[in-house]
Design a protein around this nucleic acid. Sequence first.
DNA 1: CGGCATCCAGGGCGATACTG
DNA 2: CAGTATCGCCCTGGATGCCG
Lengths: 127, 127
Amino acid sequence: MHPDHLPEDCRPISNLLSRIGDKWTILVLRVLAEGEPIRFKELHRAIGGISQRMLTVTLRNLERDGLVIRTVYPTIPPRVEYALSERGVGLQQAMLPLFMWTKENAKDIYRSQIAFDLAKQDAVTRR
Amino acid sequence: MHPDHLPEDCRPISNLLSRIGDKWTILVLRVLAEGEPIRFKELHRAIGGISQRMLTVTLRNLERDGLVIRTVYPTIPPRVEYALSERGVGLQQAMLPLFMWTKENAKDIYRSQIAFDLAKQDAVTRR
DNA sequence: CGGCATCCAGGGCGATACTG
DNA sequence: CAGTATCGCCCTGGATGCCG
């Protein structure tokens, strides 16, 4: 009756979204989505708080998925630019509604969390 | 020039999506999206491979975010039902394009990964 | 039945140092 | 500049056992 919800079908989707939805990937994608190719160092600065290692790993995964294109200019010093691939742009499009929703609901969700934690805390102190 | 892409603005979005996009949340949401309230045990069976602990944790987080409504019937044995809240339905809607995109691109992405790994492997053996 | 507490292994991630 | 390599911490998540 719900052939679209078989666990087997959802698993690959879950896998993909897990990687896309990890701590850094979204931030990297958003910066890349601004259009122009961007260098490693710029990216590093643009995303505050990310370690060099994690930026490398994140970019490598995105490249592996064909979402990001890495271009090396063999100059000295070396120059490496990253840009969204066509597929990456498509992903960005597909994520827009989710971004909108998140932006619109962030405050309400935050309030729910506060309320939930308070209720939980009350339950403890009341004990 | 790109006021929407300030790191500070993206951070909460990233946080939310990290939790939504974790290993289990999406699968749980998809099952709940089928409509009728569902009991803990049914949910556990519907999602193969999830441990009881992680199902509990996942549901608790969703409840905390106001995305899922938890209803307890104080019978013996106890009966607890979970259902998507209105907000949860909204999230589900917002995620549809992303689901579609993932479904359409899963195969291509997989191929990209294979190709990438092969190229990498070649580079090593060729060394 | 539903779910919390505890314990433990593995992996994610950061910090640091080193290379082409 | 753009990485790779190594180490070590911590947190995630699985297994198990106990409670209402």
